[in-house]
Design a protein around this nucleic acid. Structure first.
Lengths: 218, 218
DNA sequence: GTCTATACTGAGATAGAC
DNA sequence: GTCTATCTCAGTATAGAC
């Protein structure tokens, strides 16, 4: 029930409204965590409800479907990523790209989910039909694409690689399974994993010869 | 269950035996294709049976379970990969690594599946409990690890990266989603995609400064 | 709006005739 | 060994009481 003011003006939210929103945040948090843990297909609405501590039926008062719920989680993630990009200190475009990659990898180390649902065909389709998700994704891609162009103009990107290739590679590095594998192995500390992944992304695993590739051919 | 593939016994096979094995190969092929198309969770035994053109129940005369079937597919893939590695022309260790990566990417372009089930938690566990799979995986990893050590000794790998990191990175590049994304976009021809992915793996997306980073600062 | 209970579907696996 | 028919169970989503 609403407060004694009787005002429908913007004003203060009622206790119930606030509680509703808090619960919704809790649902999003739980979904995010379980998504990272089990992936889309293996994560059930039962799991989420149990994790939040509410009834499964109640979930559907907040979100129309599993797809809609996961969509909301992804939209929130994309927004946070854009916030992070805005906050990344930038002395140069290439430096900001590196900073964003580093932020993403650290997010995943802290239990976050990859940005791209390369795992699930059905989830991909569902997300691409989600207007909010597509909007956010395009916004982020525009910003990253702009950085790539700037970095290229500064002479900091390999000239023989297409912008489009670099953009997708950047996304792919953000959800690189190497992170998970190495963390399971547990012989390399987290910080070192991130350092090496960033280094490998920008400089590769090989030693590039200073002169244009003599290629020892026997 | 199946009568394994590589029998060393002479003895002519009866028609029925041959037909049984042919069918088993067809099952493996169909599973491989559907796995690439839909992924583990979304691929059902019904799909496979329909694709092969047999009854679902018959599948279980060949393989005890879905996991066992997928395990057999993965074992076959690993064996083929080792064969490919043996066939890869090698003037140098780094050259053979590049050749193997190139082979793998081309396999995927031709409808193959990634080597690592990064997609599914449950599949991972199931495979790791599969002795044949683990055996083959270790064998392949040994060979690749040997190449990495050799390449490092030849001075062709970045000195600041761990061998373990490079090994997992190599696996990860073989199942890199960048391939799928770019193929969907369809603005870059397949061959160019592979070239860029190989280049980015070994040399990165950035321009490494020949002298230790002058970093143009205004 | 939240709960309990349930309808409905798809998928893995099995039974039994031939 | 292959087929058809069926069991079992998990999962999405909904209904109805409070």
């Amino acid at each position: 029930m609403s407060s004694a003011t009787g005002q429908s003006v913007p004003a203060r939210k009622s206790f119930r409204e606030t509680q509703f929103e808090v619960r919704e945040e809790a649902i999003l948090d739980a979904t995010h965590r379980l998504l990272a843990l089990h992936g889309y297909e293996l994560m059930s609405m039962d799991h989420i409800a149990a994790d939040v501590g509410i009834a499964k039926g109640s979930l559907y008062k907040h979100f129309d479907s599993k797809d809609a719920l996961v969509g909301a989680v992804m939209v929130r993630l994309l927004k946070r990523t854009r916030d992070a990009l805005a906050a990344v200190g930038g002395d140069s475009a290439i430096g900001r790209l590196e900073g964003l990659l580093r932020w993403t990898l650290n997010e995943r180390l802290g239990g976050g989910i990859p940005h791209l649902p390369s795992t699930s065909q059905s989830l991909r389709e569902s997300l691409m039909a989600n207007r909010h998700y597509v909007d956010e994704l395009l916004r982020l891609s525009d910003e990253v694409g702009e950085l790539i162009r700037a970095a290229r103009q500064a002479g900091d990107l390999a000239t023989h690689l297409d912008d489009e290739f670099i953009l997708y590679t950047f996304y792919a590095r953000a959800c690189d399974p190497t992170l998970d594998f190495l963390r399971l192995g547990a012989t390399i500390p987290d910080e070192r994993i991130v350092d090496q992944m960033v280094a490998a992304c920008f400089s590769g695993i090989g030693v590039r010869p200073s002169p244009p590739a003599p290629e020892r051919h026997a």
